[in-house]
Design a protein around this nucleic acid. Structure first.
Lengths: 195, 195
DNA sequence: GAAATGATAGTCTGTTTCGGACGGTCCATT
DNA sequence: AATGGACCGTCCGAAACAGACTATCATTTC
């Protein structure tokens, strides 16, 4: 029962089982894939490994079916429910992480030329457009079914995509390093941008 | 010279060395901490381990000082420069990841009561307010020094923080599960919200 | 009703990542 | 030259990770 520090994955599993009711690892995998997994990917191998640890810790119960696939179905225990509620009562301190390869590429934009950066920006913009469309479809689909909190997280995702689209669009139209077009009254006598 | 698949960390190191000039792992650590590391934390142990691999692959050169701390100073090779430029020319496909514990907690909001969710939202809002302030200070500080691309990434971070602040503020004022106050023309004769 | 097929479900393993403990080195002060 | 604190680097156990692999089940085909 001495709980050996729980990870985000632990709380994910605990929470899903608490919320959804008894579930197999495969169920968890499905649940994750269609919700939080959009922002924060949890590899399925973890969703098979983690419940074992939680059973060990007394936070989940386990019933294995005797034949066939020998599925293990996990359910929350009183200790488990108490653990997750306690966690929910202590707002996380860690700052958000945004892991975005495109952003990393932009960061090094000075190493390539401005046309490459524009190409990157277009590609990113398009990718985020697609993603936004996906989220919007999802939102329509599940608006009736999913619970309000899941919808709220989706809403953040959606807003992020919109932000990203605007951001990259901005890069397309004015790549970093381009001189800021100050509002000017007079005429600029044909000075070309450097580089 | 057969390049064994490079990771984001590889490109980070490659890019930093290419951009900044010859650098020790400690330098890299500092550079990361004051820029991209705000969104995407790279543990310092990686910044010591990764350059060795890149030297192995012929993408970095290495000069170790003989005495004292025996610092190893890494510099980009022609192959390294070519590698990173080629990477920059191929816009990343992977979608952004947003890893946010607060968001995970919100996702499970249904497991606690609405006052706990509001508490969470306030805490998150405040955390993001702090972060925004930090970014804004940073922006002022380095606007002259840093290159335009680094500034652009900072700008995205800043916009994200603003988004997050608005989002969590919204949760505070209307926690998920609260009935939507539809815009209505007529007068509602004193019906109280359910719950 | 056996075989083939494809979707479903779970296990396993070799790497890599991660966080942080630990131990040196250097510098300023006394 | 001793002390203390900042600077710098290595190391290690634990966890995360990707993905190959195996097994089960449902459906179609002959």
């Amino acid at each position: 029962m001495s709980t050996p520090k729980l990870t985000p994955t632990s709380y994910l599993v605990l929470g899903l089982v608490a919320q959804h009711g008894p579930a197999t690892s495969y169920d968890l995998k499905q649940l994750v894939q269609s919700s939080i997994g959009y922002f924060w990917p949890f590899p399925h191998s973890q969703l098979y490994a983690e419940p074992s640890r939680l059973v060990e810790a007394g936070l989940l119960g386990e019933v294995q079916e005797p034949g066939g696939r020998r599925r293990r179905r996990f359910s929350i225990t009183a200790a488990g429910r108490s653990e997750i509620r306690s966690w929910l009562g202590q707002p996380a301190r860690q700052p958000s992480e945004i892991r975005d390869l495109g952003l990393l590429q932009l960061f090094f934009g000075a190493l390539s030329d401005s046309s490459t950066v524009v190409e990157l920006a277009r590609a990113q913009r398009d990718a985020h457009l697609e993603r936004r469309a996906g989220y919007e479809a999802l939102k329509e689909d599940v608006a009736q079914v999913a619970d309000a909190h899941a919808l709220a997280t989706l809403e953040l995702g959606l807003r992020f995509e919109k932000l990203a689209i605007r951001f990259w669009e901005g890069i397309v139209s004015k790549p970093p390093g381009t001189p800021t077009p100050k509002k000017r009254r007079g005429r600029d006598p044909g000075r070309l941008p450097p580089r």
